[in-house]
Computed example of a mutant assay.
Amino acid sequence: MKPIRLASNRPAERFYRGGARIAAFRGEPGTAPREPEDWVGSTTTIRGESTLGLTTLPDGRLLREAIADDPVSWLGRSHVERWGDDARLLVKLLDAGQRLPVHAHPHDGFAASHLGRPHGKAEAWYILEGGTVHIGLREEASTEELGELVARQDVVALLGLLHEVEVAPGDVVWVPPGELHAIGAGVLLLELQQPEDLSILLEWEGFAIDGAVEGHLGLGFDLALSAVTTKARSTAEIEALVHPAPPSGSVFPRAADEYFRLERLPVRGAAVLDPGFSIVVVIDGAVDLAGLPLSAGATVLVPAAAGRLEVSGAGELLIARPPAA
């Protein structure tokens, strides 16, 4: 098995605007106004959909079906022994054409108990184009207080509860399950997350979604908001969540390792891509990956059976992987 270059996989008519920065990053034609996400190497569907969001391979098969047919070759024996054919990873390019709403995602236990899902939704970002992000409570707020702000749709107060942080290209942001957050307009990022589409929306005015109906995952806000972290984050804690990535190697905080991993690999002449299932994103320059010529904006799916791969050229790669088995 060899690395596979992936085409864009941008679900249309999402509830927020964006997509032009993804098209520019990939060197592709312009996009519709509500295609702000590229689901890269996806075995996950948009919530409530049967196939939308899934990656189709160049041979016409769905990646999800290909992995189910031969999980060891795709994911590796140790991964399959622990998790079966669950890839344990969803990677996205995300272009915030407008500020995203204040929201949070449930943790594994909540998702299993109340939604019947095998994962919650931890996520982390590598910033490609900077701007502002909002993350973590500045002061403790009870579930009841949050519920009142949601009922009033008091956006000013909701945003005011959160730390506002400027981010630049090369920064990383770790968003633990339950953490309130919002991505500011103009930010382009690579997102790694657990393979679910589960969001608890605390605001929705100005977005193409009926948040009063869809924002609580069908649970009602009283229950849904119980999955939200209500403790305050200190400045030091925010600095641990948001910081520049190291120049090479693993870039996310250690707490993210149980969910996914991201490696930064600069290439100056020659380098090696270690074995294992991964999704590779070229963020700078031009490289050759095992005979596959790639330039900035390319995304590549690497099966575990491809083994150790040589990389040559001058550029930089981001390598997304599931948690270590």
Rank of each mutant, 00 (worst) to 15 (best):
L57I: 01
H79M: 12
R99M: 11
T235Y: 00
G315F: 03
V267T: 08
T44Y: 04
R61L: 08
L301T: 01
I183A: 09
A32E: 14
I46S: 00
L225M: 03
P71E: 08
V80G: 05
G276K: 05
L146A: 01
S8F: 07
V155G: 08
H134W: 15
R117E: 15
E35W: 01
L128E: 09
H79K: 13
G276V: 09
A306D: 07
R10C: 13
D38C: 12
A270H: 11
T235G: 14
H243W: 03
V281F: 08
L57R: 00
L202K: 07
F221V: 05
A227K: 03
D171Q: 02
E37G: 08
D108W: 08
E140K: 12
A290G: 09
L289P: 03
F252R: 06
E239T: 13
D108E: 15
G211T: 08
A305V: 10
D69T: 12
R264G: 07
G130Y: 07
L161V: 02
Q193K: 14
A122Y: 07
S312C: 09
T143S: 15
H134M: 11
P176N: 04
D85V: 01
R64G: 04
A87S: 14
V156K: 13
V281K: 09
L294W: 10
L292E: 06
L62V: 04
A296R: 15
R17K: 10
A298F: 06
E203W: 02
L198A: 07
R152D: 12
G218E: 10
H79G: 11
L159W: 11
P246I: 00
I4G: 04
L189K: 05
L219S: 01
L90M: 13
V102P: 06
F277W: 12
Q194A: 02
R261T: 13
I46M: 11
A324G: 13
V302G: 01
V72Y: 06
G291N: 04
L198K: 07
R64C: 09
V155I: 15
P275D: 00
Y259P: 00
G178C: 06
G27L: 09
L241R: 08
A124I: 05
L90S: 04
G84E: 02
V281L: 14
S278V: 11
V165L: 07
V187Y: 09
P101N: 04
L262G: 08
Y16L: 06
P58Y: 14
H134G: 06
S199P: 00
L89T: 12
